[in-house]
Amino acid sequence: RLYEREDHKGLMMELSEDCPSIQDRFHLSEIRSLHVLEGCWVLYELPNYRGRQYLLRPQEYRRCQDWGAMDAKAGSLRRV
């Protein structure tokens, strides 16, 4: 689950498959919190699986710093 605000607030989007462009699919370029329910995912800073990568394991991420990012920029997401 992807959230537009910290602490799992605001608009929530659910994802169960790879997403090459978060902007195209959800009209957002920033994700401020996440909740990974199962499996491991890689969040990429840019669309089409480019830029900085962040490995996400099943857990709650209340803010972008929790997954190691300096800002909430999110371009794509892929399951590993």
Rank of each mutant, 00 (worst) to 15 (best):
H27M: 13
Q59M: 14
S33C: 03
I31H: 01
L28F: 08
Q65V: 15
Y54H: 05
L34F: 12
R78S: 11
Y54F: 12
L46T: 02
C19L: 04
V36S: 00
Q53V: 03
L34M: 15
M12F: 08
Y54V: 06
R32N: 11
I31M: 05
D7V: 01
C40N: 15
D24T: 10
R50W: 04
Q59K: 15
R32W: 04
R50N: 09
K73V: 10
R5D: 10
S16G: 13
E6Y: 04
P58A: 11
C19Y: 04
Y54P: 00
G68C: 04
D66I: 04
D18I: 03
I22T: 04
E45H: 05
S33G: 02
P20N: 11
R62D: 05
Q65N: 11
K9H: 10
R50D: 05
H27T: 08
Y49V: 00
M70I: 15
L46D: 07
R32Q: 08
S33Y: 07
G68Q: 03
D24V: 07
Y54I: 07
K9R: 11
G10V: 02
A74N: 04
E45V: 06
Q59P: 00
M13H: 08
Q53E: 15
A72T: 10
D24K: 09
G39L: 01
E14P: 09
L55Y: 15
Y61S: 01
S21Q: 05
A74T: 11
S21K: 06
D7E: 14
L2V: 04
G51V: 01
M70A: 15
Y3Q: 02
E6T: 07
S16E: 15
C40H: 12
I22G: 01
R5I: 08
H35Y: 10
D66L: 06
L28A: 11
H27D: 14
D71E: 10
M12Q: 04
D7Y: 12
L56K: 02
Y49L: 01
E6G: 02
F26G: 07
H35G: 02
H35V: 15
D7L: 05
H35F: 08
E30G: 08
C19K: 05
G39T: 01
D24I: 04
K9F: 05
E38L: 07
N48C: 08
S16H: 14
C64F: 12
Y44W: 05
L77F: 08
D71F: 11
N48A: 08
D7K: 05
D71H: 10
A72Q: 05
G51A: 02
L55M: 14
Y54W: 07
Y61H: 01
E4R: 05
R52S: 09
A72N: 13
L37W: 02
H35R: 13
S29F: 08
H27L: 10
L43Q: 05
L37H: 08
E45W: 04
Y3K: 00
S16R: 13
Y44G: 05
L15D: 03
E38F: 10
S29K: 14
Q59G: 15
R52H: 08
I31L: 08
E30W: 06
G39R: 02
P20S: 08
G10S: 01
R63C: 11
P47Q: 08
G39A: 05
F26M: 13
R62V: 07
R1W: 07
L11F: 14
R32Y: 07
L11H: 11
P47S: 10
Q59V: 09
S76H: 03
Q65W: 08
Y44M: 01
G10R: 01
G10K: 02
S21R: 07
K73H: 14
P20E: 12
I31N: 01
Q23G: 12
R25P: 03
E60F: 06
Q59L: 07
R1T: 08
L11C: 13
D18A: 06
Q53T: 10
L55G: 13
A74D: 03
M70F: 09
Q23I: 14
S16P: 02
G10W: 02
E30L: 07
Q23M: 14
R1V: 07
M12V: 12
P20L: 05
K73E: 06
M13P: 00
R57V: 11
Q53R: 12
Q59A: 15
E17H: 05
H35T: 15
K9S: 09
E17F: 06
G10I: 04
I31E: 00
E38R: 10
H27Y: 09
P58S: 10
R52D: 08
L77P: 03
C40R: 11
E30Y: 11
E60W: 10
A72L: 02
L55I: 15
G51Q: 06
A69V: 02
L55A: 12
D24Q: 10
V80F: 12
A69R: 00
S33I: 06
L28S: 09
E60C: 10
H27E: 12
L15M: 07
L2R: 01
I31K: 00
R1S: 01
E17C: 11
I31T: 03
Y54E: 00
L34Y: 05
G51W: 09
R25L: 10
Y49S: 01
E30M: 09
D24P: 00
D71S: 14
S76I: 15
G75N: 03
M13Y: 12
L43F: 04
C19A: 02
R52I: 08
D7A: 09
H27N: 15
W67H: 01
M70V: 14
E17G: 11
K73N: 14
R52G: 07
E60I: 10
E45N: 01
E6R: 04
Y44T: 00
L37D: 09
S33R: 01
E30S: 09
L37F: 09
I31P: 00
D18S: 11
H35M: 10
G10L: 00
E4L: 08
G68F: 04
A72G: 12
G39V: 01
Q53G: 12
R5E: 10
M12A: 12
P58I: 05
W67E: 00
Q53F: 07
R63A: 13
E4W: 03
R1D: 02
E6S: 06
E38C: 09
P58G: 03
Y49W: 06
Q23A: 13
V36Q: 04
D7G: 10
R52N: 14
R63W: 03
R5L: 14
R52A: 14
Y54T: 04
L43T: 04
Q53C: 10
L37Q: 09
E38N: 15
H27Q: 14
L43E: 02
E4Y: 04
I22N: 05
L28N: 04
E38D: 15
Q23C: 10
D24S: 13
Y44V: 03
L56A: 01
Q65L: 11
L28E: 07
Q23W: 14
P58D: 11
L2F: 04
L56F: 02
Y44R: 06
M12E: 07
N48K: 10
Y61P: 00
H8Y: 15
M12S: 10
R63K: 08
M13A: 12
L11N: 15
E14V: 09
Y44P: 01
D71R: 09
E17D: 14
G39I: 01
M70T: 13
P20Q: 07
L43S: 02
C64Q: 02
R5M: 15
C40S: 15
C64Y: 12
R62L: 13
E60R: 14
L77T: 05
R63S: 12
E30N: 12
Y44F: 13
L34E: 06
R52E: 08
G75S: 06
S29P: 10
K73M: 09
E14K: 12
R57A: 14
M12R: 08
Y44K: 07
W67G: 00
G75Q: 03
R32A: 08
Y3S: 04
Q65C: 09
Q53A: 12
K9E: 15
R62G: 09
H27K: 11
S21Y: 03
P20A: 14
I22M: 05
A69P: 00
Y54S: 05
S21G: 05
E45I: 03
V36E: 01
Q53H: 07
L2S: 02
D66Y: 05
D71K: 12
E14L: 10
F26S: 04
C40W: 12
M12H: 06
Y44H: 08
G39W: 01
Q53K: 10
P58N: 09
E30Q: 09
E60V: 12
L55Q: 13
L2A: 06
Y61C: 01
L43N: 04
E4V: 08
R52T: 13
A74V: 15
R32F: 04
D24G: 11
N48Q: 14
P47T: 07
P20G: 07
L28W: 15
R5T: 03
S76A: 05
E30I: 06
G39P: 02
Q59I: 11
R52W: 06
I22Y: 05
L11K: 14
S76V: 03
L34S: 01
S33E: 02
L37V: 14
I22L: 13
R62Y: 09
R25C: 08
K9L: 13
L15I: 07
Q23E: 14
Q65M: 08
S33D: 00
L37G: 03
D66T: 01
S21W: 01
I22A: 03
R79S: 10
D7P: 02
R52Q: 11
S29R: 14
M70H: 15
Q23K: 14
S29M: 07
R50T: 14
R32P: 11
V36L: 04
R57W: 10
S16K: 11
D66H: 06
E38H: 12
S29W: 12
Q53D: 09
D18C: 04
M13F: 09
K73Y: 08
Y3P: 02
G39F: 03
G51H: 03
L77M: 14
Q65E: 13
C64P: 15
L11G: 12
E45C: 03
E30C: 12
L46N: 03
I31F: 03
P47R: 06
A74R: 00
